[in-house]
Each structure stands twice: as structure tokens, then as C-alpha cells.
Amino acid sequence: MSAVLASAIAPAARGRLGFLALAAVYAALVLGCLWTLAAAGDLSLGRNPWDNLVKSLADFSRPSFLDTWFGPERLEYRSDDGTLLRVENRRQVEADFLAGLGRATWTTFQIATLGSLLAAVLALPLAMGAARNLRAPRAVAIAAKGVLDVARSIHTLVFGLVLVGIVGLGPTAGILAIALHSMGTYGKLFAESIESLDMGAIDAVRATGASPAQVFFHGVWPSVLPQFVSHHLYVWEFNIRDSTILGLIGAGGLGLLISEAVSLFQWSRLATILLVVVALVTAFDALSRRVREALL
């Protein structure tokens, strides 16, 4: 629909009038979205959003890990008539949760790392097929491009849902989901760096009488490797972020704890988990940026 619109408008889009027309179409689309939502009664913020916000923020502001040191050592649960039901050491409970959180973080890291590596390996031949300057046979190029486009357009979560049904719950489904989606991203990035190769340098190596393997290792590889490593770090970093939610669909890792905390309204635990997520992503981000800058 929008493609039809765009192709009908494109010739007229030159000049100011065309731009104004496009802006008017965009404004109409936005208003249309708002109007239809409001008409269906779906534009509400719930019954008492303000109270809920204050309550959630209050819980959030006291992350659960603080209880490991400052929580009550004897929390007594009593029934209404005062009989002692259970005694809980809050410090011990939260320490156990932190240990579980550590294990889940490691699982998330495993999923992202192995999934990214598998994706990179799968993407390499497809990128070589799709790179225009390598002139793969037309059928191969179209097939490679098609596979990469499909992989890129299906979200990791969707792959995950399908794969949980095939290989069962657990990290394997997560690894495969990351691999299948990221393959599309890697393929596009790899193909672009192959297309930006300096063919003059490769021709020069070939002109010295070097064998095809020597041309590859002296002309192609040194130019392409730093870019591949840089792309790999970038997508790996992205996947660490992505794999934190894969647990939501049963693929293991931090996402499982997030979904538990949310279902039990344990906002203070959610705060702890999110702190770990932010720390993990920020640390890896800083590290990979360092390495990528060194590679330039």
C-alpha cells in the first residue's frame, strides 16, 4: 500500500511542492493512527497510572541485592492468630538469588557468544555469494541475497519461539535463534566490506605472478580481516543485549529471571537484574569499542 503510494508520488516529489505533499501524507497517516486508536477506546493509561508509577518507582529504588547485607536475618511469617509459620533469613535468600543471577548471566553470555560465532560462520559463504564484485553466478547471488534478507527480517524472538518448539526449552534454542537472525546482519556487513575492497591492490598482487591462494592471503585477507573482526564485535555486542530477553520465551538466561520477577511483581528484583544487564552491556560495549578502534 505505502509502496504504491510512494511510487505514485515519487515523480512529483521533486521540488518544494512534492515535499509538502509528502509531509501532508505523513501527517494524515499519524492522525489516522491516533484517530482509529482513540475511536476503539485503546488510548487509555489505565485506572490510576500515577499511583502505580509511584509504587513501582519506590520498589525499583531499592534493588533487592541490598538485602544481602542490610536485610533482616530473621524475617518471621505469622498467621493471623500469631502462630509462627516460617522464619526466613532474607540475607541468605537474596545471596542465593544473586548466585542464580550470576549463572543466568553466564548463560546469556554463552548464548550470545556461540550464537554470534555460528552466525558469522554461516554468513561468510552467503556474503561471498551476495557481494557484487565477486560476480557469483546469478542464481547463486539471488539465492544468497534471498536467504540473508529473510534471516534479517525475521526477529530473533520469532526464531526463538519456533526453535523452542523444535529443539525444546534451553540455551540451544537461544543459540540457534541468535545465529539464524544475525546471519542476515553479518551477511550484509561482510558483503559490504568485500565490495569495498581495493581491486587495484588485488590486481597488482596478481600481476606479480602470485598464485590464486597467495593473491587471497596477500591482497584480500589483510584488507578484509580487520573489518570482519570489527563487524563481529559489533554484532556480538548487539546479541548480548538481544539474548537478555530470549529467556522470556524459555530459551534460558537472564530473560527467565526477568519474566519471573515481572509475573510476581518483584520490582526490586527486576531492578537488580536490570542493573546487571546494563553493567554487562556497557562493559562489553566499552571493550569492543576499544578493540575496534585499535583495528582501524
Binding site: 587495484g200 590486481d203 598482487v205 596477500h218 591482497g219 584488507s223
Partner: peptide, 9 residues
């Protein structure tokens, strides 16, 4: 012209 050095070597 058109035959270059390999830039990263």
C-alpha cells in the same frame, strides 16, 4: 596507474 599497494600491509 590502477595498480596499487595493498593498503594494510
Amino acid at each position: 596507474q590502477g595498480l596499487h599497494l595493498v593498503p594494510r600491509l
